[in-house]
Design a protein around this nucleic acid. Structure first.
Lengths: 189, 189
DNA sequence: GCTTAATGTATCCAGTGGATACATAACCGA
DNA sequence: TCGGTTATGTATCCACTGGATACATTAAGC
């Protein structure tokens, strides 16, 4: 975030995003509140408005951060199976953050360049791992979108409790099986 | 439920769900508020608590209503393509309601029998249209879940503005294309 | 018909996002 | 070195929210 000189609080904007991520992770069920965040930062809640126009803007920054973290988690994957497994692992480990990242309105992403850029970064990583190398751009994009839709939709239905799984089934395995990526178990940690 | 005799307001519980659906459809962006609903019903907001333990309980009833409506919209479909097209049409026509239906927590569905029943009703309809008639139960369930995940995930990414579509592409067509249900064909890779 | 439980109202509360007005400290040009 | 401009933070206030408590009303059941 460029060199914002240290002030009262140092770099409140960055600290706010950090702490918000922690706060959301600590209790994914509880709704996110500006005032709870401000209190944790030891600052008047109104101070946050010097860095974020609105609560939604702050959450957009949190989402961008989350998406970048996701991209980092996905980058090492060498094949579709481990890629999707890493995606599911992230979403299940950070349910609150994943919600902030994905349950946004159209404009909140496309009207917010850093967020749009973060999303495109993930798509770029996915293209490298999920798409058929030789194919033309449109086909590759569709391959990626298809798998993304599958895994994202599966996670969403799972979170909502709508999926009927075999009682003993592990969600991630079942999802990959359904997605048609079952196959031999590689080196997934 | 059943025959609650007419009272001051008649059947407030049913009227509340009706009006809530209308309210949410009227402005899908605006957050849903008990007090706005009560005002529309010409009733003290506290009166709603005689019929719904909490705001979430009311929204669960709204979700159940929405899911039933969805099931009705899907029932006439004779093949996977028209089934999925009807599903997408519903989600795009009722974005607010679709959000209430799907963006719930696990317990809110599985701890609420009418909701669970409504979901299972949709699954039953889907099994009749999307699954291969001869196959065994587990396979059929997975076929349904796969398509549901695809279409639900696609809608979610689209709502969030994350999908990169060809500029001229109609979302529904593109989704069916990506899902591998283009015009005349149907298969499972 | 009278009691009783169901339903609705009036009022209060703490918590929320946001606005306005003001205080403070850092930076920059003189 | 200084002094003012500007970024940052605080103090208060507001309308609104979901929910709780206390009370009024009316429909049903004995």
């Amino acid at each position: 975030m460029a060199r914002r000189g240290a002030y009262h609080h140092g770099d409140l904007a960055a600290a706010a995003v950090d702490e918000a991520v922690r706060l959301i992770a600590a209790d994914p069920e509880a709704g996110f509140s500006l005032r709870a965040l401000a209190e944790r930062l030891g600052v008047a809640h109104r101070a946050l408005y010097n860095h974020f126009e609105t609560r939604e803007a702050l959450l957009a920054a949190v989402a961008a951060r989350g998406i970048d973290t996701l991209a980092e988690a996905l980058a090492p994957a060498a094949d579709p199976r481990s890629f999707l497994a890493a995606y599911v692992r992230f979403a299940l480990a950070q349910p609150g953050l994943y919600g902030v990242m994905t349950q946004r309105r159209y404009d909140q992403i496309n009207g917010h360049p850093p967020l749009r850029a973060a999303v495109d970064r993930v798509i770029a990583v996915a293209l490298g791992t999920l798409a058929t190398p030789g194919a033309d751009a449109d086909t590759r994009r569709r391959e990626v979108m298809r798998l993304w839709m599958l895994v994202h939709g599966g996670i969403g239905l799972h979170r909502a409790g709508m999926l009927r799984l075999r009682p003993d089934a592990e969600f991630a395995d079942e999802l990959l099986l359904i997605a048609g990526i079952a196959a031999a178990q590689e080196n997934t940690p």
